[in-house]
Design a protein around this nucleic acid. Structure first.
Lengths: 158, 158
DNA sequence: GGGTTATTTATAATTGTTATAATTAATAGA
DNA sequence: TCTATTAATTATAACAATTATAAATAACCC
């Protein structure tokens, strides 16, 4: 944890930004909720718990800054709010997401998966790929199970 | 064109919706600007040219409806506005996009590309894929050329 | 320390979108 | 055809997410 804070601090310094207490509090919230795909509002509320004097605009500005520095990725699942995801240590690419259309859960895929597809795009379309966003919408494992269970227990006759 | 309008009309009717003049005007704007990834506001302004009495809310409602019927896909490139893309005739999947980070142009890829990846996701993560969103960010062909040209003509010495 | 710059706070403004109420158009049945 | 009912639209207000502004505060450098 401290190690990752330290690293982010260096990233900020290298562009002559400072890790102010507010920014640090924001980063800590992101680290502590790494799996959660928080919205700016979510982050704001969590930061407020540990630093009640922080303003919403500061959180927005910090997230924007972290996004420019590629410390976080700003994602949008089409529900009207932007969400912020810490980029994993050492990861150079944007990770992928599995959004369940039943329960709304969001899982992550760290594996690249797109190597093949990207070189196809580069060769066939002459487009130099720098980054990508890939999201699958579908039914997650546990919702599939529930459907099966429900079907079984109700003894549906057709 | 008329053929496609007719088809959309049927799709609406099949769910007991009507193709009102306002809805038709909206659909026509989408058909006439098929390559353009229009925002709701864009659509509104274009529709207003041919049917000045239409309201913004109606355009929003129509786009929402068309989106539910999978006539259009609602996409979001992270610039704060939703964009609406006609689904190509016969296409069952969401097409992909190449967004140029230099000039902002957006190109489309109709080919599926993800067949392999999707079965991998289904097998390895047990996630039943229903739909996907894939966007590549990078440098388009013409911006690549311009960079090369600029580098050449300025005779940069190091 | 004094001046400059960066950052933050609080708040107002803006923007994209959605909800509401009144009106109009379409539809179905008597 | 008249009437009742429902669907759709308009105009506008409300809302929610985000961004801009101005004043205050903190950090930094000479």
């Amino acid at each position: 944890m401290e190690h990752r804070i330290e690293k982010i601090k260096k990233q900020l310094h290298s562009q002559s930004y400072k890790l102010t207490p507010q920014r640090e509090a924001t980063v800590r919230v992101l680290l502590e909720n790494e799996e959660d795909h928080l919205s700016a509002e979510d982050v704001y509320l969590l930061v407020k718990e540990k630093a009640p004097e922080i303003g919403l605009a500061t959180v927005y500005r910090t997230l924007e800054l972290l996004s420019e520095l590629k410390v976080v990725d700003k994602i949008n699942f089409g529900d009207g709010v932007s969400r912020f995801d810490l980029r994993k240590e050492g990861a150079t690419h944007f990770h992928h997401h599995l959004v369940c259309i039943e329960c709304g859960s969001v899982a992550e895929i760290e594996e690249d998966l797109l190597g093949e597809v990207e070189s196809q795009v580069e060769n066939q379309w002459g487009f130099e790929v720098k980054d990508h966003r890939l999201t699958f919408h579908g039914i997650c494992k546990s919702c599939q199970k529930q459907t099966v269970a429900a079907t079984t227990t109700t003894h549906m006759e057709q």
